[in-house]
C-alpha cells in the first residue's frame, strides 16, 4: 500500500459534460471515446455515460465522462451531477451566442459549488462552421482566462482538437491530484478518508507484500 511508488496506481477522474442541447457535446464525446482502436468504450448507456482508459506519461488514468441534460427543466438537480467532479467540459456552439451565455452561467455555478478544485475547459465546438461564427475568439479566450479556465476549439464533425482537449484536461487533473496528495503528506491512502473526489486506486491486487524489506516469512 505504501511502497511501490506511483507506478502501480491508477487515477480515476470524473468529468462532467455541460452544454446546451444542440451544441454537439454528444458527438464530441462520442468522437473521443469511439475514435480509436475499438468502440468497446461505449457502454450500454450509449453516449450518456462513457469511460476511457488512458496512459499518460506512464500513469494510468480512468476517465468517467458524465453527460448532463442541457434542458433547463432538469437543472434543479445539477449539483448532484457535478459533485466530486475533477473536471468539467463546457461546450458551446461558436455560431450561437446564446449557448456561450449558458456556459458562463455554468462556470459561475461550478466555481460556487466546487471552488478551484475543479479543472474547467471551455470548448467552442463546430469550428467547421467558422463562417457563421457569432462568438469571437478573443472574447471567448479572454473570458476563459478570467475565470481560470482553458479554452479550446473543436470540430466534432472533422474530429479536430478533441484528443488534445481531453489529454490536456487529464494532465491538469493529474497535477491537481498530485498537489493534493503532497498537501496531505505522502499519505496517498487509498481508502475512505480521501472522500469521493480524487480516487487513487491500486489496480493490482495487493496480495504480495510490497517488496523490499524483511519478508514476514
Amino acid at each position: 500500500m505504501a511502497a511501490g511508488g506511483t507506478g502501480g496506481r491508477t487515477y480515476s477522474f470524473k468529468v462532467v459534460l455541460l452544454g446546451e442541447g444542440c451544441v454537439g457535446k454528444t458527438s464530441l464525446v462520442l468522437r473521443y471515446c469511439e475514435n480509436k482502436f475499438n468502440d468497446k468504450h461505449i457502454t450500454t448507456l450509449q453516449a450518456s455515460f462513457l469511460t476511457k482508459k488512458l496512459n499518460i506519461t506512464g500513469k494510468r488514468v480512468n476517465l468517467a465522462i458524465w453527460d448532463t441534460a442541457g434542458q433547463e427543466r432538469f437543472h434543479a438537480l445539477g449539483p448532484i451531477y457535478y459533485r466530486d467532479s475533477n473536471g468539467a467540459v463546457l461546450v458551446y456552439d461558436i455560431t450561437d451566442e446564446d449557448s456561450f451565455q449558458k456556459v458562463k452561467n455554468w462556470v459561475k455555478e461550478l466555481r460556487k459549488m466546487l471552488g478551484n478544485e475543479i479543472c474547467l475547459c471551455i470548448v467552442g465546438n463546430k469550428i467547421d462552421l467558422d463562417k457563421d461564427r457569432h462568438v469571437s475568439v478573443e472574447e471567448a479566450e479572454s473570458y476563459a482566462e478570467s475565470v481560470g479556465a482553458k479554452h479550446y476549439h473543436t470540430s466534432a464533425k472533422l474530429n479536430k482538437g478533441i484528443e488534445e482537449l481531453f489529454l490536456d484536461l487529464c494532465k491538469r487533473m493529474m497535477e491537481t491530484a498530485q498537489a493534493e496528495e503532497r498537501l496531505k503528506g505522502n499519505g496517498a491512502s487509498q481508502s475512505a478518508s480521501s472522500r469521493r473526489g480524487v480516487q487513487i486506486v491500486d489496480d493490482e491486487p495487493q496480495a504480495t507484500p510490497a517488496g523490499g524489506c524483511c519478508s514476514s516469512g
Binding site: K25, T26, S27, L30, Q46, S48, D67, T68
Partner: peptide, 11 residues
C-alpha cells in the same frame, strides 16, 4: 450512428 446522450435520456 449518433447514440443517445443525457439530453435524450432524461426525458
Amino acid at each position: 450512428t449518433a447514440a443517445i446522450g443525457a439530453d435524450d435520456l432524461l426525458p
